[in-house]
Amino acid sequence: MRSSAPMPGNPWPHDMSITVDDRPHNLMELLWLREAYELQADGDDVPPLLVDTPVAVQDPAVGAGTRDEWEGAWPRIWRAALAHAGLDHDPRLFDELHTTANGSAERAELLHRIAGTSWRDEFGDTAFDHDSYATWSHQRAGAHLATMPTRLEDQPERRDLSALIPAWRAGLTKIVTIPCVSDFTRRVGENALLTTTATRENSDSYRRALSTFV
Rank of each mutant, 00 (worst) to 15 (best):
E96M: 05
H98K: 14
R92K: 03
S137C: 04
A108D: 13
E157W: 10
R2I: 15
E109C: 08
A143F: 07
A80Q: 15
R34G: 04
V46T: 12
H144L: 13
P60K: 06
R79D: 11
G72V: 02
A127K: 02
W136M: 09
T66P: 02
V62G: 01
A170Q: 05
L39E: 10
P8N: 10
Y206F: 15
G103Q: 07
L50K: 08
D183W: 02
M16K: 09
E29A: 09
T185H: 00
T66Q: 01
S104W: 13
A41I: 04
I175D: 11
P11T: 09
Q40H: 10
M148C: 05
H14C: 09
V62M: 08
R158H: 13
F128N: 06
K174G: 06
T53M: 02
H98L: 04
V55Y: 00
A146L: 03
A134T: 14
L172K: 13
L93K: 13
A127L: 06
T66I: 01
S182Y: 07
R208F: 03
P47M: 14
E190G: 04
W168F: 15
A115K: 12
V214A: 14
P91H: 10
D204L: 12
A192F: 08
T53A: 15
V51K: 09
V181H: 06
N191D: 08
L93R: 14
D90L: 08
L39Y: 07
L27F: 07
R120L: 02
W12M: 04
L82V: 01
A101N: 11
T147V: 14
E38L: 04
M28H: 12
S118P: 00
